[in-house]
Design a binder for these strands. Structure first.
Lengths: 327, 327
DNA sequence: CCGCTGGGGGACAACGTTGTCATAGTGGCC
DNA sequence: GGCCACTATGACAACGTTGTCCCCCAGCGG
């Protein structure tokens, strides 16, 4: 800006006026300034501007588990969309389920003075955010709740979803329904397990420990588990998969197998309807989750001071075939 | 920092020293300062720091078409990964194929003084970036080349890929091979069309306009096109799909159809191997693309001044079944 | 001719940091 | 005791902006 001012033969304040379309600059002067700006390729430094004006940085921070996962990239897309409507940029990072990394990212974003923070928690401790929250930075947790702070949270109905899955399978005559879930220290995995258990009890088929296999899972652990489930005294005739990755592992393991158990997966995924048989899922909308969380964040930014809210989004069972196999 | 200094009874410079682990502060003083920092929840303002030090902002900008698309979210993930290793945050945004939006995002990122820019071009004009590039901001284009500037670019071998697809189908006896591509003003779509044409010529089956349908496509346009292709005098017996979305549209349109044409899709996608028949694709690696581009960007940041490079990443045909149907 | 008005423009401080340099005190050595 | 070296600390400017306040001067009315 200094250089522009020198080249145009005016003070930097006048350049500032031109750049900001402020009134009170003679057209001929403005023209000289614009020419200088063009010639020098000047671009206003937003950081300096925000610093001086004490205004918001126009950014929001997004910490999620893995942008590469279609579920989270759907969330990201929705967040971006709304942020854009409100004139904000999104800075994002993946924690890979590492609490340390989550914290590092969140605090880094705070150092950059983001206007707000959206976090898919990896860990259970979030008191590190208390100073920021007290300082007025709104924080919304999504997909999973915060560990040890009370804050806005947007979840999906994990328990209701698995209850429904089990109920659905039981209605088709299954009494030996297995559950393959993610690592039990992950909130959603644990909730879904609870839903599974409740569903079993409600259906009157009882909860049997030997039908449950919590993760972390990979392709081979799923394969082993399935073998165990099918060779036990009373084999499982149906499976509830705890998330989209596990569903896919199961599908791979079952590829080419003649006698397939019924299957209901948590999380919808592309092409589920084109497989044979098409896969019945508990669907919930990544973009709805992102939207709800971002809306909440902006409500806070708009001055909403009401007590922290917990929003639970509904899920719905989408019957496609794999879950409608009779026992 | 001012408040911290006041509370600790020292000058702000001393606080700065403590925050930056600079030597020459008495342990007892440092302790007082740390206590004050803790009590006030102070967090250093990175913008101000970077402004003062004239150092990099530690961010890189990523403009892509749509984070929600698994291909681009794979790219994003790879970019993030490498940026992280080099201590940078990623700011990203989706252009939705809108050149105006692409420009807006890129310039916004420049205003934020990103250290470098990664762009999946939506438009054909990128001279708006010339001032930035001259000012030393490295820019790498990925997936598609820049319109009217010479710059680093990382592409995949679109032509080679479709040539291979056609050759593969012709080797299985097909002589009526159709091509469904994206809108022809999209670079990759156009290249793939060229590859298709060249493949036809090389295979000695000739290029026939009526077998080509360029987009933009949606589910219904694909359906109509397929009907046309199958009811013409000499029906198409094989199809090359120009990208992953189109492949999926075709799969949906063909669901339940008995007499299926052979199919090779450009872009691999999850579960392609579990469909029946499994889908033969031209695969290329999103994360390799992201990694190559980011590596190139960092090489520039490390001072590499060699002339702009154009990297073309290989693709490979993955036969799975849908492309090995004999005519 | 004087004073007032208002448009056009500039000087300066400040945002939150950090780099540079100065200074006060302390202890050791001749 | 005087001087030096060294440690601990602070004052101040500057990064690139913008908000505040002030000034100059032309034009106009009396």
């Amino acid at each position: 800006m200094n250089d522009v001012a020198r080249l145009a033969g005016v003070s930097i304040k006048t350049v500032s006026r031109v750049v900001n379309d402020e009134p009170g600059v003679h057209p001929s002067t403005a023209e000289r300034v614009l020419a200088a700006i063009d010639q020098l390729g000047f671009r206003r430094n937003l950081s300096a501007r925000n610093l001086r004006r004490g205004s918001s940085t126009g950014t929001i921070g997004l910490v999620l588990e893995d942008v590469g996962n279609p579920f989270y990239s759907g969330v990201t897309r929705a967040v971006e969309e709304i942020a854009r409507l409100r004139g904000r940029q999104v800075i994002s990072g993946s924690s890979d389920e590492d609490p340390g990394r989550e914290r590092e990212l969140a605090l880094e974003f705070c150092s950059r003075r983001v206007d707000g923070l959206l976090i898919v928690p990896a860990g259970l401790q979030h008191s590190y955010l208390v100073p920021e929250m007290r300082a007025g930075t709104p924080v919304v947790f999504l997909d999973r709740p915060a560990g040890d702070v009370v804050a806005d949270t947007v979840l999906v109905d994990n328990i209701g979803g698995t209850v429904e899955a089990v109920t659905h399978l039981a209605a088709h005559g299954h009494r030996r329904i297995a559950f393959l879930g993610d690592a039990p220290d992950i909130f959603t995995a644990n909730e879904r397990l609870r839903g599974y258990r409740e569903g079993c009890v409600r259906a009157g088929i009882g909860y049997h420990e030997e039908l449950v296999a919590m993760g972390p899972h990979d392709e081979s652990s799923v394969l082993t588990t399935l073998q165990r489930l099918q060779t036990m005294r009373e084999p499982a005739t149906a499976i509830v998969a705890g998330n989209n990755r596990i569903t896919v592992y199961i599908l791979r393991a079952l590829a080419g197998v003649a006698e397939r158990p019924a299957l209901v997966g948590f999380d919808d995924f592309e092409l589920a309807d084109l497989l044979s048989p098409p896969v019945t899922v508990i669907a919930h909308d990544a973009s709805a989750l992102g939207k709800a969380a971002t809306d909440l964040l902006f409500a806070r930014l708009d001055g909403d001071n009401s007590p922290p809210r917990r929003v639970v989004l509904p899920v719905r069972l989408v019957p496609r075939g794999s879950g409608e196999v009779h026992a």
